[in-house]
Nucleic acid binder design. Sequence first.
DNA 1: TAATGTTTTGAAATCGATTGCGTACATAGA
DNA 2: TCTATGTACGCAATCGATTTCAAAACATTA
Lengths: 343, 343
Amino acid sequence: MKLGQATIKDIARELNLSASTISRALKDYHGISDETKRKVKEMAEKLNYRPNAIALSLRQSRSFTIGVIIPEVVHFFFSTVISGIEEIANSRGYNVILAQSNEKLAREISTIETMLSNQIDGVLVSYSKETKTFDHFTKLLDHGFPIVFFDRAPAIPGAINVMVDDYQGSFDATAHLISQGYKNIVHLAGPKTLKISIDREKGYKDALLKNGLDVNPAYIISCPLGTLEESKDLVSELLISLPDRPDAFFSCNDIGAVGAMMACRDAGLKIPLEVGIVGFSDWQFCSMLQPQLSSVAQPGFLMGARATEILIDIIEKKLDPKTMEQSLILETKLMERGSSKRF
Amino acid sequence: MKLGQATIKDIARELNLSASTISRALKDYHGISDETKRKVKEMAEKLNYRPNAIALSLRQSRSFTIGVIIPEVVHFFFSTVISGIEEIANSRGYNVILAQSNEKLAREISTIETMLSNQIDGVLVSYSKETKTFDHFTKLLDHGFPIVFFDRAPAIPGAINVMVDDYQGSFDATAHLISQGYKNIVHLAGPKTLKISIDREKGYKDALLKNGLDVNPAYIISCPLGTLEESKDLVSELLISLPDRPDAFFSCNDIGAVGAMMACRDAGLKIPLEVGIVGFSDWQFCSMLQPQLSSVAQPGFLMGARATEILIDIIEKKLDPKTMEQSLILETKLMERGSSKRF
DNA sequence: TAATGTTTTGAAATCGATTGCGTACATAGA
DNA sequence: TCTATGTACGCAATCGATTTCAAAACATTA
């Protein structure tokens, strides 16, 4: 061992005892004399003994490690989720192995393989945008391997999901815009491969209908990339092309909302007077913009924490994925700010 | 095994061969007939065999896992660093175990312990603000355990560090403000416990002196918290209290710069006409502000990537920490944007 | 003193994969 | 026919800790 790490055998040799005795003494098993226990512990301390978790993992087929697969780390929301995961995992004695899929299916699959090789006890997954089939997950679920999905919930019957209430958040945001007197509300929608995109679009539509407004398909704009430039360009064009100029934009993410904001400003439109804008996620920067961007806040830390608690409960058989609630839906909170408040 | 995972023994049993033969066949060792190799690989495929990395780790005292200890994940800069780490580690066949110290020394220490128990091959560390003694690191370094520090470099002789050139970045930013004709440049400084704060302040001072301006202690404002409110309040007060009104602010971080921006706007000052502002880190939101915030870009991804390359090279003995360059200093890049460009 | 019970400890197997060494067999050369 | 060389494979030890099964060592009782 690189560190000259002491093992149980070293302690045994020093004290002229057997390895089994050392093991038992360290764990305060019955049938070991107090005198021996004392000596063993003393020697362990002296040799700076640290149990080899790898050996334990091998023996028990348990690694006290959970895997986290996330599309990308550099994303405010995901980083808060990771923080929540790390916090709970740590407090319950688990390690966190992290891997990002970079939104690539191939990498998602290879990552899972590697993690399984490393005998992780369970995995938390937010799948990639490329992922359209879920065999690599169902195969594991069928064998009873603990998986909890967060944020992005796959179409797998029986899978455990922790999500935010995208529908309601979206509904609230749209209803808020309506209440502020905006009428031609455009929705900048995300990729249809993600359930969250679909839910957010549905919340938008329902809010319109519920308030007696029509759903105009021309007002639902697909933003597959999710970049600032994309939404900026699309909105700029929209402001010219549409017969009835849009007077509000509800974007499925904050970046898109900023793009819309820029496009409107470039077009000489006053925010929030002439155009209202609401984003989704409530990234840090929302309150730094001028005007401040209204947005739907997602409880990222809480999501990570709750997902981890559930996963570990399943691992430790405190929960049974077969009988438990399959989805945990966390509430969002609309942060009404300057970009959408006329009154 | 939970997954009914096939082992080498299972393959051996199926084919009436010994475990050693299976192992060798799978690795294409000489001395195994092609026929046998074929059959073994076929059966491995059929049984969905996956080598048990834990068993390997135990045998080789190598886990192909590196630890990452970071003050906090929810931090744009650190998340880009993590991304770089993950990218390189992955490509070189290593797993990444992540833990955040939450800026607590105690947690930093216990985290290291856990990671060592898990036989990590090396660790990447950005130490906490609380950390003032480094015994827990030197102890390991003395035993030849691979550690690479990033961003925050400890006062440990012989330690390998990967940092950005805070001094130069700061110097450039200040020089830029001067070149734009600003004369009364205030520096919003960070906590003195971090070397990066000191370096940034020094860069600011030297840039002033080099350009024939005086260093006025009243123009160096300590912002220990690093929050938006803190800097906003301090700047608001400053704009009134100082005899010569400041006409530029160079903040040691972006958040502080935004606070300054807000305070100036509240005071009715035009940016960049009457006041110039430059931040440090170049967070995503800088280019979303109005006007866009000039900032010193730190190569986070690159820092993570380079630190990981060095660490793995040390682990794999391709580099010797005793003889190699001890510090890798990465260049910053000043992003000149609307908040500081008058001409 | 022998039998029995209690306390304390050890030998060996186990987890999964690797590897040094040994063996069985075939073929070639002398 | 006997030795030398090579091919193809198995045995057993190893990594570190745990745990089952037993065996000692000792005390207690009849």
